[in-house]
């Protein structure tokens, strides 16, 4: 199969996977395997940032790479970490000639038989969520256009991860969205009630609600709820705000 055909088939396979329910690790593994085939690298792997920003090895196309990537995370140095931290790709980096950029990682990598490395960022709206890494057993650089292909793989991985996260977190995020919408309605209604009861403009009413929340160490939403329920007296709230201003 030509490389173009392989590439096309890969994207078809990936995009079909994305539409249905999918296992994200399985998909990333497929992606790493295809990087190896299409770009003729020795091995490829993907790291993702966890909630605290720490990188985790998600998949590696070989055990040797898995060990090396785990070492990288432990040692806190190496191409994937640099790529993740800076958001910039590390391209055609020859390890023997790197002048001690990653002393511990380089020693381990050379010992494992790898001569050069590539690392590409997984980007989302300016945030970096991980990195796609490729190791070579020789010092040959990527051919023209191959860096773009690799970045396309990284972009597909990013979409896959996002879709996965959206599915997982959809319920929780929707609850937050609904709550934010409902809270906002409550606050606007409370502004109206306070304005009418205390003879204030809407803006003055909002300031009165806010200063009551601040002075009593309450959330704005619970103050608004109190005003709507009638457990908080809007007229007094307005009077207190006027006293504050005086």
């Amino acid at each position: 199969m030509t490389r173009e055909a392989l590439l096309a088939r890969t994207f078809v396979q990936l995009s079909d996977t994305l539409v249905d329910e999918f296992d994200v690790v399985e998909l990333l593994t497929l992606l790493a395997d295809r990087c190896v085939e299409v770009l003729d690298v020795a091995t490829a792997g993907i790291m993702l940032a966890g909630p605290g920003g720490e990188l985790r090895v998600m998949t590696s196309s070989s055990d040797a790479m898995r060990v090396l990537e785990l070492f990288e995370v432990q040692a806190q140095e190496g191409p994937c970490l640099d790529c993740y931290r800076t958001g910039r790709p590390v391209l055609n980096h020859v390890l023997a000639a790197d002048g001690g950029r990653w002393p511990r990682f380089t020693a381990e990598a050379l010992e494992a038989g790898f001569q050069s490395v590539q690392a590409l960022p997984l980007r989302l709206r300016g945030n970096i969520i991980g990195a796609l890494n490729m190791f070579h057993t020789d010092q040959e650089a990527l051919a023209e256009g191959e860096a773009e292909i690799a970045q396309a793989f990284a972009d597909v991985a990013t979409i896959a991860i996002l879709q996965h996260r959206a599915g997982l977190e959809g319920q929780v995020m929707n609850e937050q969205l609904q709550q934010a919408l409902n809270s906002r309605v409550l606050i606007e209604q409370a502004k109206g009630v306070t304005a009418e009861r205390a003879g204030l403009s809407i803006d003055e009413a909002f300031r009165a609600l806010r200063s009551h929340a601040r002075n009593h160490n309450l959330g704005l939403v619970s103050v608004a709820q109190g005003v709507i329920d009638g457990t908080l007296h809007a007229a007094e709230l307005g009077a207190a705000a006027r006293a504050d201003d005086a």
Partner: peptide
């Protein structure tokens, strides 16, 4: 998000 409508609801509820 039609904030003014909810503000007006608050005003009218008092009236």
């Amino acid at each position: 998000f039609q904030h003014v409508v909810h503000q007006a609801s608050g005003v009218v509820s008092v009236q």
